[in-house]
């Protein structure tokens, strides 16, 4: 039996982000640690989870899987555990395993199993949390991680708020384009998005 290439790619991606030479480089600064290494490890796990879910239907498992992913991720975003993982190799290994198998894998699995409503809910919640975390990082005057600089903490805050803004901007753009297309097809003529019927827009009132 040959190894599935998607699963191999997922494992390789997580390993690449966690092990030297790339791992320590990403861990050296807080923004690249949280917005670089974490997403790469999670993406590695998510590839595996999505591959496993491809031929299996278990819609009931979508919500618990996505919740597990969110909770496992939030554990490793606690400042004390970010510090601990940098100070202790065993904790670091536990973090890599947990981010790939308890966050990434259920994320890929749950996302594949989830319907559009749950997906939307998940994205909205995640984006809101990202913005709140970024704002908190910018508001806190003290260092939260003993292993990272205050300026890096600010930078991470800006990065998180920026990322949340980008997601919101993208969603708005998609909604506008969708509304424009919907009205264009329905009316046969070009209308401004605001004149379109709200029921035809993929997103509710965004004005």
């Amino acid at each position: 039996m040959r190894a599935d290439p998607v699963i191999v790619a997922g494992l390789a991606l997580a390993a690449l982000a966690a092990l030297p030479p790339v791992g320590p480089l990403l861990e050296a600064r807080l923004p690249s640690h949280i917005l670089g290494q974490y997403p790469l490890i999670v993406a590695g796990g998510a590839l595996i989870g999505a591959r496993l879910a491809r031929d299996r239907v278990a819609a009931w498992s979508a919500a618990p899987a996505l919740l597990a992913a969110a909770l496992a991720l939030s554990f490793w975003l606690l400042p004390c555990w970010i510090d601990a993982s940098l100070a202790d190799p065993a904790v670091r290994a536990a973090r890599v395993a947990s981010l790939s198998l308890l966050t990434g894998l259920p994320l890929g699995w749950g996302w594949t199993q989830a319907g559009p409503l749950l997906r939307g809910f998940f994205v909205v919640k995640a984006t809101a949390m990202l913005a709140v975390m970024g704002w908190l990082l910018l508001a806190v005057p003290a260092r939260l991680c003993n292993a990272h600089l205050l300026s890096d903490q600010r930078l991470l805050g800006i990065g998180m708020v920026g990322l949340a803004m980008a997601v919101i901007g993208l969603a708005l753009l998609r909604a506008c384009v969708g509304a424009f297309r919907a009205t264009g097809i329905a009316g046969g003529t070009r209308h401004a998005p605001t004149s379109g019927s709200p029921s035809q827009a993929p997103m509710p009132d965004f004005r």
Partner: peptide, 16 residues
């Protein structure tokens, strides 16, 4: 789904 979600939430809360 509800039972599994509650179980995951409980385990997650305990871990945090």
């Amino acid at each position: 789904a509800a039972l599994a979600t509650v179980a995951v939430a409980a385990i997650g809360a305990a871990a945090l």
